[in-house]
C-alpha cells in the first residue's frame, strides 16, 4: 500500500527465508569472510572472461539460496536482479541458466534494495509466492568498463573506491505471524534521482551522500517513524567521504543519529591494510553485507530493526567524458525481526 509520497508499507510482512552470497579473493581477505557462502581464489573463477566469471557468481549465489530454502528453480516465480555491466548481461545470462522468469533492473549500486522493494511489493500483493532478488558486481569487469584496464598503472586518489567482486541474493516469500525466525520486510521507500553537481567519477561517495540523506528523510516523513526507532541505519557504499558527509547532513537536519547506529557497508567489508582507498563500492557491496552479514546478526539478536539504504551513482564512462555531473539515487527498505 502506498504511504506518504513515495513509500510502500507491506501489511503481510514478506519474509526473507534464505540468502546466498558469493565473493572473490579480496573479500576472502577482508573483515567479513564468514558472511560469504562461496569464496573464490581469483577473479577468473575458471571462466574464459571476467564477464562470465561475473555470471558464475550470480548463478552460485542463487543456487546456494535455493538449497538453503529447500526449493528448486521451478518453485520460484520471478528473479528480480541486476548488475553494473553494460546491458546487465551477466545477470541476463545467469537468468538463462536458472530458467526463472526474469525482471532485469538497473539501479547501479542501489539495485539490491530496488529489487528487494519490488519483490516485497509483488509478494505482499499475492503476485508471487517466491521471488529471488539480489545484485552482483565484479571488480575487473567493472574497472574494465568504467575506468582503465586492470593492469594499468594509474594512480587512484584517496577518494576512489574498490568495486566488490561478489553476488548477494535473497528469497522473499509470504510469512505467517508465528514465523519469528525469519527477518521480515515491513516498508520501503523508493528514491528520487538527486544530483548536487559532483562530477568526479573517483569520488562517488561524495556524490551519493545527498541521495541517501534525501531518501532517509523522505522515508521518515512518509512512514511517520523517528530515526531513533531503528537499531541500525546502513548505507550501501558511501565510503569514507560519503559516510562523513551523510552523517553531517543528517545532523544538520536535526536527525541526531549516533555513529554506532549509522554504518556503511562499504566500510565494513575490507580491512585497513587492503588498498581500497575510501572503501568498497559496487552493486554487491550492499547485497553481500546486508544479505550475508547483517541478516545473520539480526537472527542472532544483535539488531531488531534495520533500515537498509542502498545508494547508486547513475553515471557511465561516456557521461564522464561528456563532462556531465553524477546523478545518484538511494532506495531504502526496512527489515525487522518479530519478537
Amino acid at each position: 500500500m502506498l504511504i506518504g509520497k513515495q513509500s510502500w508499507i507491506f501489511q503481510s510482512k514478506p519474509a526473507i527465508i534464505a540468502t546466498g552470497v558469493s565473493g572473490g579473493p579480496f573479500e576472502r581477505e577482508g573483515l567479513l569472510p564468514e558472511a560469504f557462502d562461496i569464496l573464490h581464489d581469483d577473479l577468473w573463477m575458471e571462466e574464459p572472461s571476467y564477464e562470465q566469471a561475473h555470471r558464475l557468481l550470480i548463478e552460485e549465489a542463487v543456487e546456494v539460496a535455493l538449497k538453503k530454502a529447500n526449493l528448486t528453480n521451478d518453485d520460484i516465480q520471478f528473479i528480480i536482479a541486476g548488475d553494473l555491466i553494460n546491458q546487465i548481461t551477466p545477470t541476463s545470462f545467469a537468468a538463462r541458466t536458472l530458467g526463472i522468469p526474469y525482471f532485469g533492473i538497473f539501479g547501479a549500486c542501489s539495485t539490491s534494495m530496488e529489487g528487494l522493494a519490488l519483490s516485497a511489493f509483488i509478494v505482499n500483493n499475492k503476485g508471487a509466492n517466491y521471488i529471488v532478488t539480489g545484485a552482483a558486481s565484479h571488480n575487473a569487469a567493472a574497472e574494465r568498463q568504467f575506468r582503465y584496464p586492470t593492469e594499468y598503472g594509474g594512480q587512484k586518489p584517496p577518494t576512489a573506491q574498490w568495486t566488490v567482486t561478489g553476488a548477494g541474493f535473497a528469497i522473499v516469500s509470504h510469512s505467517t505471524p508465528n514465523q519469528t525466525e525469519f527477518p521480515k520486510i515491513t516498508c520501503a521507500t523508493i528514491g528520487k534521482v538527486v544530483d548536487l553537481g559532483i562530477s568526479d567519477p573517483f569520488n562517488m561517495g561524495g556524490a551519493m551522500a545527498p541521495a541517501a540523506v534525501d531518501t532517509i528523510k523522505t522515508h521518515l516523513k512518509d512512514t511517520g517513524r523517528k530515526i531513533t526507532d531503528y537499531d541500525l541505519i546502513v548505507t550501501g557504499d558511501l565510503g569514507k567521504i560519503g559516510y562523513s558527509v551523510a552523517l553531517d547532513l543528517l545532523h544538520g537536519d536535526g536527525l541526531n543519529i549516533p555513529e554506532e547506529k549509522f554504518k556503511d557497508c562499504g566500510l565494513l567489508l575490507y580491512r585497513d591494510d587492503q588498498p581500497v582507498q575510501a572503501g568498497a563500492s559496487g552493486a554487491a557491496s550492499s547485497a553481500t553485507v546486508i544479505y550475508g552479514h547483517l541478516l545473520k546478526q539480526m537472527k542472532a539478536g544483535v539488531y531488531k530493526k534495520i533500515l537498509c539504504v542502498a545508494t547508486g551513482a547513475l553515471l557511465s564512462p561516456l557521461t564522464v567524458q561528456q563532462k556531465e555531473t553524477i546523478p545518484c539515487i538511494a532506495h531504502a527498505v526496512s527489515i525487522e525481526m518479530d519478537s
Partner: peptide, 25 residues
Amino acid sequence: KKKKSKTPEQQQYAQFEQKHEIKRP
C-alpha cells in the same frame, strides 16, 4: 556547450563536500 553553471544549492554542497574530502597528498 553553454557552460552549465551550478545552482546555489549545488555550489553550497560543493563547498560542504570539499571539507570532507580526503585531499590528495
